[in-house]
Amino acid sequence: MDKTSRGQKIKLLILDVDGVLTDGHIIFGRDGELMKNFHAQDGLGITIAHRAGLKTAIITGRESQIVQLRSSELKILDVYQGSKNKLEALYELVEKYNLALEEVAYVGDDLIDLSVMTKVGLSCAVANAVPEVKSYAHLVTNHHGGKGAVREVVEFILKSQGKWEEIITSYIQGGQIKTQQ
């Protein structure tokens, strides 16, 4: 099955954080994690995904207040932090939303992401992912993690589903489109 056919079926987009939603840099201060860099285009991409009816979730191996703040701001309702076994979170999400694995997309960048990537309908790797992750991806982005890669995946899915032109038209007309999530 080609990647466009895979994209047509997606109802849930799951994201890793470090190296996907961020550029992978983690800045520590004396009292712990201080900062992560997020890209505004990725944020708008997630907002567009929600408005177009896609559900979103985060599964990350690290725990961070910054991730909780950013996911709350973007209205990502399902956030799994400290996940050493990302498959458990995947199966919980599939059951929660009554989805088939082929209706799930996942975006990753490193070896910890392979267990999920090899199970979902559309596995995506960011441009700066390690070679092993890229080799298992149905889609490899042109953008690096934290530099618009998530937005690129959202656009790919929505174009595959024939929803992108409606989104563009809605922004031309003032930015309002129906919210389905």
Rank of each mutant, 00 (worst) to 15 (best):
E165N: 13
K119R: 15
A57Y: 00
K3S: 10
I10H: 01
H39V: 01
I58M: 08
M1C: 00
R151K: 13
N128D: 14
A57P: 03
A57I: 00
D109V: 06
G82Q: 07
K119D: 14
A149D: 14
L122D: 10
G29Y: 00
Q41I: 02
W164P: 11
G121E: 05
K147R: 15
S83P: 01
T22P: 10
L44A: 02
D42E: 10
R62C: 06
N142E: 15
R70C: 05
Q8W: 00
G162I: 04
G108K: 13
G43L: 07
K36L: 07
E166N: 15
Q176D: 11
E103H: 11
H25T: 09
D31K: 12
L122G: 03
T22H: 09
A129D: 08
G53A: 06
V79T: 10
Y97A: 06
L34P: 01
E102C: 13
G121Y: 01
D16F: 00
L111E: 13
L54K: 02
K3H: 06
I59F: 02
I112N: 15
R51E: 08
D42V: 03
I46N: 08
N142F: 03
I167R: 02
E33I: 08
L34E: 14
S83K: 05
G45V: 02
D110Y: 05
G32R: 04
L99P: 12
K36M: 04
A100C: 12
K3T: 07
Y91I: 03
Q65W: 00
T22L: 08
G174Y: 08
D42C: 06
G45F: 00
V79G: 11
A57S: 03
T56S: 09
K86E: 10
L54T: 12
A105I: 05
Y91L: 12
